[in-house]
Design a protein around this nucleic acid. Structure first.
Length: 574
RNA sequence: GCGCUCGUAGCUCAGCGGAUAGAGCAGCUGCCUUCUAAGCAGUUGGUCGCAGGUUCGAAUCCUGCCGAGCGCGCCA
């Protein structure tokens, strides 16, 4: 379904072209002074050597606006203010209401998009540092999937490397059954720390750990078996959290670093064959174009360390080659913290130079900022250590439960618990996704779960209220109206906001700036509650009641769809 | 030293070259015999870090400075 901007564009573009003698973007946007405004006349003034107001007037003189625009006038220095015709809104809303997809078309050219996100480390519990990647990546998966792309989820587990020598050796010391018991209790951190402590203090243990790494890499069956046990226990722990978080990651999405082991040597060999490989201080490196170090000298990407081991750049390169060549992905998304932006820029550049990332295939670092505590420093527990993700989610749910018990004591225990989960987790996710992804944000329990203002619960509540109207009235809102007539100002404002959904979703599918979708939903909820205050629904009669019911229904569906795209639960009552 | 990001209301944040810079929270005034007050209406509050520049027009683009954070070869 065409957006209002697109419809206006189609009417104004020919007029601008006629006046300017060339194609001109009318430069449409929402306006405080009217429904929309077109700003292009101002930019044309210099080129045409005419006053902008005069250009704007000429454009309006030749534009065919009938049936869409009620009033159009030149304003200020040369803006064109446009007010939509009520008659034009009704049929558009009707079409949106009849469409299961709410007017959002599937993309014309679906791509295979791979989303690399979450990526916790085996033998370590997930912590607050994994929250953003998991939540943002999940939103990306949901939006792109709904837009019609083929989406591949990739959970790039940290399941390999030198630490595993020490972990496996510790497992061997503890005895498999004993350690398995410890691990299944979910105390991965204690296991890791015990191994770490021995590694730091015990020279012979350190030596055994090193040879254990060699055994692991050479495929020693006993060692591999213990490694597998660690991975399995860790994956079990991750899946519990993913389920609690309500993200779509499954056990089928785990594809850790170890998966690429056999591809590392060929990748380096290929770089060598292509003439990209150099040797520096015993390490095998590539110097991607455009990167310089401290003294202006070329900056190397170390693909093979001087001791013969492969670094993570080699794994990342192997993954790119695999994802484009074997999986056929054309859009690779890396939902990883912003501090790694230079690393990814270099890896992507090398991949391009090696021919593993050629158009239309491309990679994007979907970077994000850090979560900060109230003191403006990295978010940590009061004791100063990292906050476990499990504890964080539990607290979110507990805080929500306390408030629900207070505000809605009538809910039965089961519903109450389910709502607490949706609200607590939703609040947490909304706080994250409503902020510009690329910036740090301050984590504040009281703000996100106070349930006032721009929060997840406010949006959930707005939707629940609408469903409550239907329940109260014992009505099923109409889904088949040819048009949903709007006349009252709150109805019009709501209508225009509703019709903006298509554009926002399409834009977010490209930019992956989820705070724009969050902001849209908040505006929609705000406009709706204004409508709700001023326009009685059940007490209205005849066609007015019908159209208001339809507006309520559309709003509930858009809020529901929008929240779902963000991965936020949609309780029907609160 | 080099590079990246960021300085917007008391606090937390929007604002992707356009009109008097917006929102939430906090503060102040009102509104629950009427569809959920987790709400609504109104109101107070800003030299957009500073200085130049580009432009008809700059919070937005460029340069410099000040301040904060992060990253800069064999950890991932």
């Amino acid at each position: 379904m065409a957006t209002l901007e697109a419809l206006l564009h189609d009417r104004l573009a020919p007029a601008f072209e006629a006046v300017a003698g060339a194609r001109v973007d009318p430069s449409l946007r929402r306006s405080q002074h009217a429904d929309f405004q077109a700003d292009a006349a101002l930019a044309l003034a210099k080129r045409l050597g005419r006053p902008p107001r005069e250009i704007a007037a000429d454009v309006l003189g030749s534009a065919r606006l009938d049936g869409l625009v009620a009033t159009a006038e030149v304003s200020g220095p040369g803006f064109i203010n446009l007010t939509l015709a009520d008659d034009a809104l009704g049929p558009l809303l009707g079409a949106m209401s009849r469409d299961e997809r709410l007017g959002v078309p599937r993309v014309e050219a679906p791509e295979t998009v791979l989303v690399d996100y979450s990526a916790p480390n085996v033998a370590k519990e997930m912590h607050v540092g994994h929250l953003r990647s998991t939540v943002i990546g999940d939103a990306a998966v949901r939006v792109l999937d709904w837009l019609g792309h083929r989406v591949l989820r990739a959970n790039h587990l940290g399941d390999w490397g030198t630490p595993f020598g020490m972990l496996i050796e510790h497992l061997a010391d503890e005895g498999e059954s004993g350690a398995a018991g410890e691990l299944s209790l979910g105390d991965l951190n204690a296991f890791y720390q015990a191994a770490r402590a021995k590694f730091d203090t015990d020279e012979t243990f350190r030596e055994r750990s090193r040879s254990r790494v060699v055994a692991l890499q050479s495929g020693d069956p006993g060692t591999r078996h213990m490694w597998r046990l660690l991975v399995d226990e860790s994956e079990r722990h991750f899946l519990v959290l993913y389920d609690l978080l309500g993200v779509r990651l499954t056990d089928g999405d785990f594809r850790g670093e170890s998966f690429y082991n056999d591809m590392l040597a060929p990748v380096v060999a290929e770089l060598d064959r292509l003439g990209l490989l150099r040797v520096s201080e015993g390490a095998q490196v590539v110097y991607p174009a455009g990167f310089t170090g401290r003294g202006g000298e070329p900056l190397p990407l170390i693909v093979r360390k001087s001791d013969g081991g492969f670094g993570y750049p080699a794994t990342d390169l192997a993954a790119i080659r695999f994802r484009t060549a074997e999986l056929g992905a054309t859009r690779l998304l890396y939902v990883v913290g912003l501090p790694q932006s230079q690393h990814f820029a270099m890896v992507f550049e090398v991949a391009r130079e090696a021919g593993w990332l050629t158009p239309p295939a491309r990679a994007e670092h979907v970077g994000f900022g850090s979560i900060l505590g109230p003191d403006g420093k990295l978010f940590r527990s009061r004791a100063g250590d990292t906050v476990k993700l499990g504890a964080l989610l539990d607290e979110a749910i507990a805080r929500a439960a306390a408030l629900i018990a207070e505000k809605s004591p009538d809910l039965d225990p089961e519903t109450s618990a389910a709502v607490a989960r949706d609200v607590g987790i939703g609040a947490l996710k909304y706080a994250d996704l409503s902020n510009d992804r690329t910036r740090d944000y301050v984590f504040d329990w009281d703000r996100m779960i106070s349930f006032e203002g721009d929060t997840g619960p406010y949006l959930q509540y707005a939707r629940a209220r609408i469903l409550s109207i239907f329940r109260r009235g014992g009505v099923t809102p109409p889904h088949d109206l040819a048009a949903i007539p709007v006349t009252a100002p709150p109805e019009r404002a709501l209508a225009i906001e509703l019709l903006g959904f298509t554009g926002v979703v399409a834009e977010v599918g490209e930019s992956l700036e989820f705070h724009r979708l969050a902001g849209y939903l908040f505006r929609l909820a705000t406009v709706f509650t204004a409508f709700y205050e001023r326009c009685p629904v059940l007490r209205a009669e005849g066609s007015v009641r019908e159209s208001r019911l339809a507006l309520c229904d559309l709003t509930a569906r858009v809020l529901g769809r929008g929240l779902t795209l963000l991965g936020i639960g949609t309780p029907d009552r609160m």
